[in-house]
Nucleic acid binder design. Structure first.
Lengths: 193, 193, 193, 193
DNA sequence: CATGAATGAGTGTTCATTCAT
DNA sequence: TATGAATGAACACTCATTCAT
């Protein structure tokens, strides 16, 4: 007796189409009409699922962020030693950027362009990293990690991965397993006590 | 045979207007009409100085990059010891991001959005960092810097500054002198042998 | 699933507006905005019915040509004697130019300005005269019409009508029934054996 | 002691550039800037020689018409017999269209497009054919040429040449000496008594 | 719920003409 | 006389969004 209801399939198709178009053509060449065509619906249908274009982008941002943090904290547990737990998360994030390329590229754009995501959504998105912040705080209490601002910790451990992903995207550089190991070592060296 | 001559002032005014609008409204909301109005010229005048919008953006990118590298290598000399020379450049770059905020923000956007700058201009812009690459190579030969890809060196020393600048812009974090010292130490620790 | 359907009325209104404006203001002063206003639609609506301005002109040309040939071969049959058949067609064409003035003027402009209609459409438009070419060929086989290029036959029988129409338009000359009879006699004399 | 005066060379260069561009690109793609560039002068210079674009076109029309009539009545004298004189003029005109192609094409466009030349200039241009009109009148008095409107005489003898020229331009048809002879015969048959 | 037609406001760009030298 | 810079008004066309079904 399934009642007729908003089909989640269409919603997903629209988010995927947006992701793809914004990544490949840029925000300024991802018109609603193309998004609709790619998702195989009418332009008017978009407005059943999203209030407007900004809302569509915002929701895409939040779902990508959620997908990101699911990935980031896979297999993570509070029982792990600080360095072990940090390496697990760090490698999860690296893996996300290597395998979920479209989402990673989109998130990177959103985080670097001021005008793309509105402040409210950005604040919501920030919460996704809480377990990492907690880990860092524990590490600092245990005297394993430098007692410095989490922004500095992020800047020197997680943020560099965005650059490495971009360079890999542009075929300038390959993130081999060996390079990943080097990269993690650099990250750790920059924040360890 | 006399005639009015192309005024460099207008050219500069146009570049500044573009810089300001792209930074504050985003690339997708920086129309030629607004740029013209802000530079106090007619829309048609833009096309005397620039072939089209992309050319305007490209030229702005290249001039900002040039301005950046002027700043980056101020007082630098090949006589300096590796670490000293590197710290000089690193602090110059940090300073650029702290004082030439508009240009720095613009460059950061250009480098993070694939579709903004065309490949040719990007390639030209890359050359501006050559002295730093040379320094790193020397440092590697002298056994002071890890023998790893310059992309990794960049990712862990220079790139984090972009994040810190953005966070400072958003009032999340302040790049005090103390934080700068901590940041440099992290940068150096991540690449020193 | 229901939706508004593309109204043929609007399409026709747009073609008529274009016809009128191109005839009266010239191709160079028939902007899309005026066409839209005259057809009582928004400028954007034009692009639902036509790919671009050239396409609009091309379609108008082809439909006018089709309307022309419908007119030209009204009541014509292969049973008619050569001269009778030819006179029928000739008078049909003259009638078209006298009564369907707007279309006739437009077609005359299209055929005389190289840059107005693209080659593909021109080729398509040419096919509309085939029955006349066939009649001429039969007439030549029967020894009634001179064995000369159809371009010459056209130049001396049909083409002069365009001039006479233009002169009538400019009130220099009146195509009375008497003049029509004289004109046909001249046409026939120039091609008969 | 040549005083600095408007250089006729520049005027001619401008007229030639206009002729060429209007013929090849159409009136709607012959902007003043292109005309200036082709004539190797500044756009502003055009306005020293011509009041505006319409004036430039009008003057070009009148000079081409004058050049046409010089050509048309070369070697013509009132002593010639009607048919001989007519054939001379007719062949002169045919020759003009075969050899002075650019001017002929331009004049043909002007005469067929209502909106190109203003009425005053058109009236002036008409006077150039006076000797032919006189010849026809004499021919009618002598009973050699049908007593019909000169518009009809023109339509069936001179106007067809425009069509033949256009077809030759488009490589559909070749105006060989043989075809010229046939064409003249047709012309004469259509108007002779 | 879903649609394609419809649109007003806006886009980047061009143009005939004028300005200042 | 001659110029290249400068421009307001326009151009063809696009877009996010709404309408009518």
């Amino acid at each position: 007796m399934a009642k007729r209801t908003k089909s989640n399939e269409k919603r997903i198709a629209l988010l995927n189409a947006t992701l793809h178009l914004v990544n490949n053509n840029g925000f300024h060449d991802a018109p609603m009409s193309k998004i609709a065509k790619m998702a195989d619906v009418s332009p008017a249908t978009i407005y059943i699922y999203f209030a407007n274009k900004q809302d569509l982008i915002n929701q895409l941002y939040l779902e990508s962020k959620a997908s990101f943090s699911d990935y980031a904290f896979k297999d993570y547990s509070l029982n792990l030693a600080i360095k072990t737990g940090f390496e697990l998360i760090w490698r999860n994030i690296a893996n996300f950027k290597l395998t979920q390329v479209e989402e990673a590229v989109f998130l990177s754009q959103c985080d670097n362009i001021t005008t793309m995501i509105d402040e409210t959504s950005r604040q919501k998105g920030l919460k996704n990293l809480q377990p990492l912040l907690d880990l860092w705080e524990r590490g600092q209490k245990e005297g394993v990690i430098k007692s410095i601002s989490p922004y500095l910790l992020y800047a020197y451990t997680i943020y560099p991965l965005a650059f490495l992903m971009t360079m890999q995207q542009r075929n300038n550089f390959e993130l081999t397993e060996k390079n990943l190991t080097i990269a993690f070592e650099s990250a750790w060296n920059s924040i360890k006590v």
